[in-house]
């Protein structure tokens, strides 16, 4: 669905406006504003980047340059559930690649992309801080540890 600044997305833009008004004067405000914007919209559509650029009196290319530099910023809408399989070193040596491959196969979805029905986004992440449970994945806020590839199908069925 396209972004509609005066229609369905009006409230979100108002929220963003409030954030910008609050942070505008502080040194290095761009990143915190973009992080807030991503929280509000779920991603950073070009319209939102343009809005931030206008408000801060900088060029769109400056905003875009920052958005594309950092892995945290996503420019496309995310799936309803975001899956993050840990490919940190501790998980990798315990076979998390096989878990990720299995998910990619079951969901027919390459890593870093969203399924066609918009239900899942499949990501590889770095250490989630739960190496004691390696290999680990997260779906939303839920952590699944000591995974085996053949367990993931059953876990997905819960969503």
């Amino acid at each position: 669905m396209p972004i509609d600044r005066n229609g369905k997305d009006k409230e979100k833009f108002q929220q963003l406006q409030a954030v910008i008004d609050d942070k505008k004067g502080m040194p290095g405000a761009l990143m915190p504003i973009m992080q807030n914007a991503q929280e509000i919209f779920g991603y950073l559509p070009i319209e939102v980047q343009q809005f931030i650029a206008d408000e801060l009196n900088i060029t769109l290319s400056e905003v875009y340059g920052v958005a594309t530099f950092y892995a945290q910023f996503v420019l496309e809408p995310q799936g309803e559930h975001v899956i993050g399989v840990c490919l940190g070193t501790a998980c990798y040596v315990k076979g998390s690649q096989a878990v990720l491959d299995k998910l990619s196969e079951i969901l027919h979805c390459p890593v870093g992309k969203t399924t066609e029905d918009g239900k899942f986004t499949l990501n590889a992440t770095r250490c989630l801080g739960a190496c004691g449970l390696a290999p680990v994945m997260m779906i939303g806020d839920e952590v699944y540890g000591r995974l085996k590839p053949d367990e993931v199908e059953g876990i997905l069925a819960k969503y």
Binding site: L87, R126, C127, G129
Partner: peptide
């Protein structure tokens, strides 16, 4: 920023 992809000391 704890960049090492397999570590969590600073976080702890």
């Amino acid at each position: 920023d704890e960049g090492d992809p397999g570590a969590f000391m600073d976080r702890s």
